[in-house]
C-alpha cells in the first residue's frame, strides 16, 4: 500500500547534471522493492502542477531511507536539483510493480543493462541481488564519461561481479552503444535473465537481442504520468494481456513489464 508523506532530505550527491538524493522516509523504505517508483512534488505550490515520477535507486529498511537518482533535463528535475539536505518534500510511494527476482537462485548470471539515468532502478536491484548471493553482470552505457556517475559506487559497493561500461564517444570503457557491447560480448551460457532500463531506442534493441538469444527480460518503462497511482489513465502503453494487446497503465500494472508483453513497434 502506497503512502503520501512529507520526507526530509538526508543527503544529496551530484555529478554535473546527475543527482543522487536520499530521503528519510521509513514508511516508504519498509515497503519498497526494486523497480518501484515515487511521485515527487518538486515545487510545493507549482509550477509544475503535477508530480514527477522517479524510480527508486535504493531503499534501506534499517536506516529508514529511500533514494532517487536523476538527471537534470527539464523544469521538474531542475527544481528538484536545488533542494538541500534538511529540506522537506512531498512523496507518494512506493508505487507500481517492480522486478521479479524472488525465484532466481544461484548458479546463473543476471544481466543488468542500464542506459544513462536508466541505471537508477538497476542500482537498487543489484543491491538486492547481491544480498542473495546472485551473480550480477552490469552493462552501463551513456553518451560520454560524465553520463556514468554511478560507476564508482557500483564498483565500491561490489554490486557487480562484472561491470561493463560503454560510451558513445569512447571516453570511458567500450566505444559505442551499450547494445553494441552486448552484441559483441560472448553471452555466457549461464546467463539467465536480463533487467533493463534506459532510453526507448536502447530498450527496443536490447529486447531484440534477448528475443534472439531466447533470454527472458524485464524492462522498466518510462512515461509521463498524471497521478502515478492509477486514477488518471494517462500513462498507458500497448501491453499483451492474454492473446491481445491492451492499453495498460504503466504506473499501476508496471512500470516493469516482461519483454514479450511489450509492444515495441506498430507492426507487432
Amino acid at each position: 500500500m502506497s503512502q503520501l508523506i512529507e520526507a526530509v532530505i538526508k543527503d544529496k550527491k551530484s555529478w554535473g547534471d546527475y543527482f543522487f538524493v536520499t530521503f528519510q522516509a521509513p514508511e516508504l523504505a519498509a515497503l519498497a522493492a526494486p523497480g518501484q517508483f515515487v511521485m515527487v512534488k518538486v515545487s510545493p505550490k507549482g509550477p509544475p502542477l503535477l508530480r514527477r515520477p522517479f524510480s527508486l535507486a535504493s531503499a534501506d529498511r534499517e536506516e529508514g531511507t529511500i533514494a532517487i537518482f536523476f538527471q537534470r533535463v527539464g523544469l521538474g528535475t531542475n527544481l528538484l536539483s536545488r533542494y538541500s539536505p534538511g529540506e522537506k518534500i512531498s512523496l507518494i510511494g512506493p508505487l507500481g510493480r517492480g522486478f521479479s527476482f524472488e525465484d532466481l537462485a544461484f548458479p546463473g548470471e543476471l544481466l543488468l543493462i542500464g542506459g544513462g539515468r536508466g541505471i537508477a532502478p538497476l542500482y537498487y536491484l543489484a543491491q538486492k541481488l547481491k544480498e542473495r548471493g546472485l551473480k550480477v553482470i552490469i552493462f552501463y552505457g551513456g553518451k560520454t564519461q560524465s553520463d556514468l556517475p554511478l560507476r564508482e559506487a557500483l564498483a565500491k559497493k561490489k554490486l557487480a561481479d562484472k561491470l561493463i561500461l560503454a560510451t558513445e564517444d569512447g571516453s570511458l570503457g567500450f566505444k559505442g552503444l551499450i547494445t553494441d557491447v552486448l552484441e559483441q560480448e560472448v553471452l555466457s551460457p549461464l546467463a539467465k535473465k536480463a533487467f533493463v532500463c534506459g532510453p526507448e531506442a536502447m530498450m527496443k534493441k536490447v529486447a531484440e537481442l534477448l528475443r534472439r538469444w531466447n533470454l527472458p527480460g524485464e524492462f522498466s518503462l518510462e512515461a509521463f504520468m498524471g497521478c502515478g497511482f492509477g486514477v488518471c489513465w494517462g500513462c498507458v502503453r500497448w501491453i499483451k494481456r492474454g492473446q491481445e494487446y491492451q492499453l495498460v497503465r504503466i504506473c499501476q500494472e508496471g512500470p516493469v513489464f516482461s519483454r514479450e508483453d511489450i509492444k515495441w513497434s506498430e507492426e507487432e
Binding site: P47, L49, F224, G234, L247
Partner: peptide, 12 residues
C-alpha cells in the same frame, strides 16, 4: 492511443 497527457501552465 498515447500520448494522452500534456502539462500546461497551471493546467493539464
Amino acid at each position: 492511443p498515447p500520448p494522452r497527457l500534456v502539462e500546461t501552465t497551471a493546467g493539464l
